[in-house]
Design a protein around this nucleic acid. Structure first.
Lengths: 108, 108
DNA sequence: GTCAATGATCGCAATATTGCGATATAAACT
DNA sequence: AGTTTATATCGCAATATTGCGATCATTGAC
């Protein structure tokens, strides 16, 4: 009945799916790209760059924090967000392991 | 009001988000892993391996086909699904380009 | 033609996501 | 204490996703 059946999948599969969610919305891709490029790291600046309301950006940041791929450093009255290197590395490994597998042409 | 604002993001960002959606559900991760491992490629076999109903699996396959990362070859009365190498490569490039960017430790 | 097998699609219910205005919170400053 | 600034959270509405039973469509076998 519409409930996500996470229990029937492996920890690894669920984690990879969660990491993928960090990239599965263009706003979050844009946020991560900005953080990587150090174009902006303060919430307010991100709001300015993206065309979205502050509440919306804050929610995307919250989701990225939940996944663990970014961390927020409180620097009153601002919060400076940045990539969390260990989780970024985890994502690189996880996607790399799957994507670098050789794809064979023939099927069946 | 809840509509995804794809128009304010770049083509590239929207495409990467779409590619990420292929991996953003554990069932789709499992399907892609099975296709890669050639453990199963026929819809019915996938249904057997996953613990999900046939209709549900068919829908995930449809979504993966929409993204383009898999293709279905009709082999009556079965359909054999397999990875679509060009799009797989596209995903590898897209994720690689973003994830391989050097993460600097300091922030602000 | 009918039948069985396989997969796609429909229709529905439950839940999740996206977005935003309004409000709450927290800290620095007066 | 009151004000300002920056961010988080609440509450709501709209839409998307997930899941499944039932049904439809296609093909091969009879």
């Amino acid at each position: 009945m519409g409930v996500s059946r996470t229990e029937i999948f492996s920890e690894q599969q669920n984690r990879l799916a969660d990491l993928a969610k960090a990239f599965a919305h263009p706003a979050r891709v844009a946020i991560l790209q900005m953080l990587m490029a150090k174009k902006a790291c303060v919430c307010g600046d991100l709001v300015g760059e993206l065309g979205l309301a502050q509440a919306t950006v804050s929610q995307h940041l919250k989701e990225l924090k939940r996944i663990g791929i970014i961390q927020g450093e409180i620097n009153p009255p601002r919060v400076c967000y940045c990539i969390n290197p260990p989780v970024w590395e985890e994502a690189k490994q996880a996607f790399g392991a799957l994507l670098d597998t050789r794809v064979e042409v023939s099927c069946c």
